[in-house]
Nucleic acid binder design. Structure first.
Length: 272
DNA sequence: CGGCAGGCGGTTA
DNA sequence: TAACCGCCTGCC
């Protein structure tokens, strides 16, 4: 077991960061800390702002990895000032959700997680992903009385049949996963941003999420039902006019559309 | 209670 | 544009 302390300036809160819908493998504990797994690294994270504590079962926690994962090298104060000056709604949302950071997640993990997320809700998405890892992934070690598993590699998932996946109850998403795994495995497991839409089960919204969460594209602006609600209620845009939403995001939030999206998402969800 | 619509952080055909 | 798997919610 090891412990390191990192700093996120005055802008990190684990609750806001892990509960804004960008990740599915972290769980809140009684004491408000979060335990989970990213790739093959397990940790418990608590504290905030200048004092973020990472507890890990490893002999030494990987400082560089966690700093990058938690996006601690980006100046969120500067971004908040920049966006806040241009728009009052985002200013309020960023005050409300202060401490949200965009996680830098694994590409393969993000790809399959968001295929599963389609037309689905967070508790069920988490359950599906955990079961997938437990049934077909490598053990990653035990921590805090629990065993953790990596998600199965593309080659492993590519070999499975819909019958194998049946107990997970993925519904119509199961064939999407297998087909996408085959494509990725055939491609030497290289996932290219310019080909995201070519994977089965990846439409505009999911592609936009992967681009934002795994390819460091902070201007990517995923439009889901919650963002549509924000756009309708707070900006008066017609619920079906996604083009107008894209344009507003471009005008008001560029080049930080994705960061704005996270704060707006958290804002509307917590308020409703 | 118990059965049955309606909805869910979209994509496909 | 509707159908889609499965599960949870609210309604009657």
């Amino acid at each position: 077991m090891s412990r390191i302390i990192l700093s996120g300036g005055s802008n990190f809160r684990p609750d806001h960061t892990f509960d804004c819908g960008q990740c599915f493998r972290w769980d809140r504990e009684e004491d408000g800390s979060y335990t989970g797994i990213a790739g093959r690294k397990i940790a418990r994270i608590y504290g905030s702002d200048e004092r973020i504590i990472i507890e890990s079962p490893d002999r030494t926690a990987d400082r560089v990895f966690w700093e990058n994962y938690l996006d601690l090298n980006r100046d969120y104060g500067k971004i908040r000032d920049y966006l806040g000056k241009r728009d009052t709604v985002i200013r309020e949302a960023m005050e409300f959700g202060r401490g949200i950071r965009l996680l830098n997640q694994d590409k393969w993990e993000t790809l399959i997680s968001f295929i599963i997320s389609a037309n689905n809700n967070i508790p069920r998405i988490k359950k599906n992903i955990n079961m997938l890892a437990e049934m077909f992934g490598k053990p990653a070690g035990g921590f805090r009385g629990r065993e953790f598993y990596e998600l199965p590699e593309p080659e492993v998932l590519a070999q499975l049949t819909e019958k194998d996946l049946a107990p997970i109850r993925l519904g119509y998403r199961a064939p999407y996963l297998i087909k996408t795994a085959k494509m990725v495995a055939d491609d030497g497991c290289c996932i290219r941003e310019d080909r995201l839409r070519g994977y089965v089960g990846v439409g505009p919204k999911v592609a936009s999420c992967i681009s934002l969460f795994a390819f460091d594209n902070v201007d990517s602006f995923p439009i889901d039902t919650w963002v549509k609600q924000v756009m309708n209620k707070l900006y008066g845009i017609d619920k079906k006019d996604t083009e107008a939403m894209k344009k507003l995001a471009e005008d008001k939030f560029s080049p930080y559309g994705g960061i704005a999206q996270q704060y707006l998402f958290y804002f509307i969800r917590e308020k409703s």
